[in-house]
Structure formats: C-alpha cells, structure tokens
C-alpha cells in the first residue's frame, strides 16, 4: 500500500508523539526527580539533595519510639479511589452501552442529532453540574420530593454527602466518554447483519455476543479507559458531592502541594498511582487479548 509506507508512517505518527514526549514525558521525568529530593522548609524542594523519605512515608510511619510501623491511611485512600472508579465505570457502561447501541441503530440523519444531545450538557461547567446534583440530591431536593409525591415516604433520603452521591456525580461527569467511543465503533453496524443473524436462527443473546459485542469491544475498551482513569484523579466531585468527608487520591495529592507543603511526597504519591494504573492496564490488556479466542 502506497499510503502507508514505513517512511510516511513515521512522519504521520511523529508530531503527536514528539508533542506528548516534550510536554508530558519531560515534565514527568522532572517530577520523578522531585519525588526523590529533599523537601524545602517552606514548600518547594532543595534541588540537588536526594532523599527517599517520600516513598518510605507512603507505607511506613514512625511511632513515638521512632520505630517504623505500617501505615494504612494512604493505602485505604488508594483502595477507595479504585473501588469508586470501578463502580463508576460499570455504571457508565450499563447506561452508556445501550444508549450508544440505540443511537447507532437510528437512521443516519438522526444519529448526529443524538450525538450532539449527548454532548450538549457538557458545555456547562463541571462545578455547575455538580452543584445541580447537589440541589437534586439533598433532603427536600427534587428527587426527595418526587419520591414523596409518588407515595414513598423516605423521611429524608440522606443521599447527598455519601459515596453514592459521588458515584452518581462521577458517572454523570464521564458518561460521554463511554458513549462516544462505543458509538464510533458501532456506527458502521449494518441492520441487515443483525436481521440476517436472526433469520439464520440466532437468538437475542447470540446476536448480541456474536455480532454486536465483538464490534463494540474496541469502543468499550476505549470508553472504559476514558472513564476509569480520570475517575481515579477526580478532585472536585468528592469534595462537593461527598461533602469532603473522605479523600480520593487527587485530594490527598493536592493537600501535599497545599497546606502540608510537602512536594516530594505529593510527587511520590503521583508516581505510586501511575505505577498502579500501568499495572492495571497491563492486566486488563492481557485479558482483552484472550477474549476473541474464547468468543470464537
């Protein structure tokens, strides 16, 4: 193929890679260096003097006798962030997949309108959307009232300022990142293909697992990544909808660059998170590679 000669491919890929390498790779390397530096007394770092304190204090704590003991506070925050992000990804998939499928099955002329309908709410700001959810979820708010009107006396739902509220808010925030990639991969699905499957005696489940899902898989993978990772770094939603009662990783990191003024520890926390994400991704991609073999 003329278009994709080795030489040309290089020049196609180079701009994006060089750009990311320069504006992201280099800053991260610099940041890695910061994480093994000594902290400055008033924040910042002492360039040049190395120290591994930041990594040690992630797992260990010094008790009163100056012995190292294991400290689970930070691990707990990490664990909670992973749980909430996984829950959010699943919720987004449950809502997003049928919707993407529904849109992909619409006549060509209507699909774009639906896609824009999906994206329009996101022209408002994330803070504003979170506030709207606060108004909806709070006691005496719209959802509470609605349930009371249809006869369910909830006696105050107490939904707001709970992890559920955070999940609802996060799912809302990242929904389009699930819907759009799935739609993009389902969009070329031909109605006749499904009809043919039914004509040949396939049932719904078979049509779904043999035709629709394999086609949607790249989109589902992309969508799940796009939802899961930003969720891990969520900063605003746990503060607003969770009532600031528990931290997620980003809040912890933020506080190191805030009141604690411990930049190396903040940088180290960031790198621990990055490492965990990379491991999770590797496990995920290994599993994904096996899938098509099982399905066929």
């Amino acid at each position: 193929m003329e278009f994709f000669t080795r030489h040309k491919r290089f020049w196609l890929i180079a701009p994006a890679v060089v750009y990311i390498g320069f504006f992201m790779g280099l800053p991260l390397l610099q940041m890695a260096y910061v994480s093994i530096l000594e902290r400055g007394t008033n924040g910042g770092v002492n360039w040049g003097s190395l120290s591994f304190d930041a990594y040690i204090s992630f797992i260990f704590d010094r008790d009163l006798m100056d012995n190292l003991i294991i400290n689970t506070d930070y691990l707990q925050i990490f664990l909670r962030s992973f749980e909430l992000s996984a829950l959010t990804t699943v919720l987004a998939l449950i809502l997003g997949f049928p919707t993407a499928f529904y849109i992909a099955m619409q006549p060509q002329s209507r699909r774009n309108m639906f896609i824009f309908l999906v994206t329009i709410p996101f022209w408002t700001n994330i803070l504003v959307r979170n506030y709207a959810w606060m108004l909806l979820l709070r006691n005496g708010g719209l959802i509470d009232n609605l349930l009371n009107t249809i006869g369910l006396d909830t006696g105050g739902l107490d939904l707001l300022y709970t992890p559920y509220a955070v999940s609802i808010g996060l799912t809302y925030t990242y929904l389009p990142f699930m819907v759009l990639p799935i739609y993009a991969s389902l969009e070329k699905l031909d109605h006749r293909l499904i009809e043919a499957a039914f004509d040949l005696g396939a049932n719904k489940r078979k049509a779904m697992t043999r035709i629709i899902l394999p086609l949607a898989t790249p989109g589902i993978i992309a969508g799940s990544i796009l939802v899961f990772i930003p969720c891990l770094g969520a900063y605003v939603t746990p503060e607003l909808l969770g009532g600031g009662k528990f931290m997620m990783i980003a809040n912890l990191i933020g506080s190191q660059f805030g009141a604690a003024r411990n930049w190396p520890f903040g940088a180290a926390l960031g790198f621990v998170l990055l490492a965990l994400v990379l491991i999770a991704m590797m496990v995920y991609s290994l599993k994904f590679k096996k899938l098509p073999e099982n399905a066929s």
């Binding site: 704590d61 689970t72 506070d73 930070y74 707990q76 925050i77 600031g244 009662k245 528990f246 931290m247 809040n251 912890l252 506080s255 190191q256 009141a259 604690a260 003024r261 411990n262």
Partner: peptide, 14 residues
C-alpha cells in the same frame, strides 16, 4: 508540626 497536622487531617478523611 505541618506533617503532624497533615497526618491528622488525612487520618480523619481516610
């Protein structure tokens, strides 16, 4: 003192 403060705050919210 700041370290102690931050650890108290983190424990409160972990």
């Amino acid at each position: 003192a700041r370290d102690l403060r931050n650890r108290v705050w983190t424990k409160l919210k972990s």
